[in-house]
């Protein structure tokens, strides 16, 4: 009997990993096909992020640095979409820059989507007057330093090639410090860490950040130390923000799949450990 159990456990431990993959896929796809609504409460750090935007006077300039690419689209694009809706709705001026080559198309997509929303369209927002996308710039921290000194020389042209000197909105925005709030949407490095360390303190930025879940624990010390006024981490952060802004989107919809994925991984860790210790114990 013992031997039988031992052999079964041994075989279980040597399980072909394709079964694991299949289970994972099922855990994710099923809730997406059959949606289950699971209520959740927004995280305090996300609420503070939301608050930081709500507290801005109308017409303030918000600089958004979108430093991510399609790789982290599912986590951050819902945030960016909700962010633009929120900023436009609050009648704030928006300047966007990107340190990642893959970001500008995603940004344009999010802006276009926000402009078409029924609560934004009547506002008649104009490109270059109410918002502008400066596009991508390589050089990482060097760009941050450059922007702190002079955005006009760091980004001589906007994404569509218009010289910055001809953009009305940019006349109010000569250096990083001219923005009333700095929002960093970050998918890795260069991202929140670099912005905080290179620019936040040095140029005295009021800064909030949305980052991928992977980066969130790294950024919590900055949030705790007050260097970030608010922080939204991962798909949960995006879902929280969607809730707060009142625009449940793809992040909110993904939370059920997220739940099952986590539970499956926990189950794997538990089963793997139980089987491992039982077989090891017997062998001795």
């Amino acid at each position: 009997m013992k031997a039988l159990l031992l052999r079964a456990l041994g075989r279980f431990l040597a399980l072909d990993r394709r079964w694991i993959f299949l289970l994972m896929a099922l855990c994710i796809v099923t809730p997406l096909i059959l949606p289950i609504g699971l209520p959740f409460t927004p995280d305090p750090a996300v609420r503070n992020l939301h608050r930081a935007i709500e507290d801005l006077p109308e017409g303030s300039v918000v600089l958004v640095s979108c430093d991510y690419d399609p790789g982290s689209k599912p986590e951050l694009q819902p945030f960016t979409e909700a962010l633009f809706r929120h900023l436009f709705r609050r009648k704030l001026k928006v300047v966007v820059s990107c340190l990642w080559a893959g970001a500008p198309p995603l940004v344009n997509q999010a802006i276009a989507q926000a402009l078409e929303a029924e609560d934004i369209r009547p506002l008649g927002l104009k490109d270059k007057v109410d918002y502008v996308n400066l596009g991508y710039k390589d050089g990482r921290q060097l760009v941050m330093l450059g922007m702190g000194e002079n955005i006009h020389s760091t980004f001589p042209k906007s994404n569509d090639g218009t010289p910055v000197s001809q953009i009305p909105l940019m006349q109010r925005m000569r250096k990083l410090g001219d923005s009333q709030l700095f929002v960093n949407v970050s998918g890795g490095s260069p991202g929140t860490k670099e912005w905080v360390e290179t620019a936040q303190g040095r140029f005295g930025l009021r800064m909030v950040a949305a980052c991928t879940a992977v980066m969130a624990p790294d950024n919590i010390p900055y949030y705790e130390a007050g260097q970030l006024l608010g922080l939204a981490g991962g798909m949960k952060g995006s879902a929280d923000y969607e809730q707060l802004v009142g625009l449940p989107g793809s992040a909110t919809r993904g939370m059920a799949a997220q739940s099952f994925g986590h539970l499956l991984i926990i189950a794997f860790i538990a089963l793997g450990n139980v089987a491992f210790f039982m077989t090891r114990g017997r062998k001795r």
Binding site: R17, I20, F21, M24, A25, G261, L264, I265, I269, G272
Partner: peptide, 14 residues
């Protein structure tokens, strides 16, 4: 996501 699932089963031992 899939690699993590397999690593969770295979590598994460107490």
């Amino acid at each position: 996501a899939f690699y993590i699932a397999s690593a969770a089963f295979r590598a994460f031992r107490a």
